[in-house]
Nucleic acid binder design. Structure first.
Lengths: 240, 240
DNA sequence: TAGATTGTTAATCGATTAACAATC
DNA sequence: TAGATTGTTAATCGATTAACAATC
């Protein structure tokens, strides 16, 4: 019996309301399935989770996986998983399950995240170092191509494969390196200022590991990491 | 215009299927409202998120907050927020909003997380140090009361306010310190073994910051932290 | 009073689930 | 063939949203 993240309740509670969610887009793909339409928030979020589990399962040498196993690890109902997948094609084999490797590439295609994407990491403290040396981002095609800090003692040192730069170089580097995501691993007090700089530099996705509530323009998406929230939530069901 | 986490799509996608979700429990409270029943997964997760934002707003000296402001920060629809809250009482003031401090204590009461809960942190590397020195857990009544590592070079050193202990002491310390949550901040290869030890020691909630897919008994809840998943998801809506 | 915001209703949409035939 | 698991249908439940009266 595997685990699963209590993560996203029926709505992974983070229901987002980001403008139109189901408008048609240009490029179609395999033919059948809703490939030509923008995915709903729910489907996109679940597919991302399946992808995470599949990526790890592949690492562990697993060749096939059933919807029930995926369900055990994601806590998404197995019928819903089969439903989500069958909307895009018949990926599974009855009596056997899904081929892990082929399902990974199918989902990557659906999520259009087959390519490489560049990340800027802000903050070279403990958290920044932990993120820089982790595989999690790299596994999904995200590359930390620049690390910034304001501390003169840290600027110039090497973290992961990158030399730490001073924050004053942010705007230039974001453009040069084609950075689409900024990750804030800085103290709460510094977060808003750096978010402003990221926005000014044209970054549209910010990952906030600080506690600060960030104010950004509507076209910028902020994801605030909140382990304590998930813990509160898990604890509620433990206590009751 | 504040940000918000793409987090939990309409379902914070992590819909969980953990047995009965709406059975009645013993203690009733204020009288009106569904206080006597177990919260649905969705409501509990959303309330946790409101609490996170409110806690930070309180720190920033904010006295009142409207459902629209809460919506901007959580990406939960403002009508839904009012609906969620009004189920437990009339906490708001028309034309004004909600009192931040009073709403914090109301939600804490609803989530039954007013008390202190003890955490064991496994791994005294960069991530462990980052977690130990962060406020996020402390803000919500979680206390890191023990830190473990297997590295002899780390055992005995001080991280945060704790002296790092050897993992062999785990079972004893879990019992002595009444630890209910184990946080895994260790390399992927070590995660399952430590999860097994936590389970054997009686811990029922595990927070997994490694990439490992953990197999645990059904009564244990595992939350796997997955920043890359959230990033994939945010990127999809950015690219389309 | 005028403006703002809550609390609540009603309608819709999507997630959830059980069930089962199809088929590997 | 027998067992397992997918793909799909149909029914239910809860989330989402707009709208608006109540009221601070």
């Amino acid at each position: 019996m595997p685990s699963g993240s209590v993560w996203e309740p029926s709505f992974r509670v983070t229901s987002v309301a980001y403008g139109e969610l189901t408008t048609t887009i240009d490029d179609a793909e395999d033919g059948d399935g809703p490939m030509g339409e923008r995915l709903s928030l729910g489907v996109a979020a679940r597919l991302s989770r399946y992808l995470q589990v599949l990526t790890q399962a592949k690492k562990m040498g697993k060749e096939t996986i059933s919807s029930q196993e995926l369900s055990d690890y994601t806590h998404v109902n197995s019928t819903q998983i089969r439903r989500d997948l069958s909307g895009f094609g018949k990926f599974g084999k009855r009596g056997v399950g899904y081929n892990v490797e082929s399902l990974v590439s199918q989902i990557r295609k659906i999520l259009r995240t087959a390519g490489q994407h560049n990340i800027a990491l802000l903050g070279a403290g403990h958290l920044g170092k932990a993120i820089a040396s982790s595989d999690i981002f790299a596994d999904h095609g995200f590359r930390v191509v620049a690390i910034f800090d304001v501390d003169p003692a840290k600027v110039g040192t090497t973290v992961g494969s990158q030399v730490v730069r001073h924050t004053s170089e942010l705007a230039r580097v974001v453009e040069e390196e084609d950075i689409v995501v900024g990750v804030l691993a800085v103290p709460t007090a510094a977060a808003q200022g750096l978010a402003d700089q990221l926005v000014a530099a044209g970054v549209k996705i910010i990952f906030n590991y600080s506690e600060s509530l960030l104010d950004v323009p509507p076209e910028v998406t902020v994801h605030t990491s909140s382990p304590a929230v998930d813990l509160l939530y898990a604890l509620y069901f433990y206590l009751t």
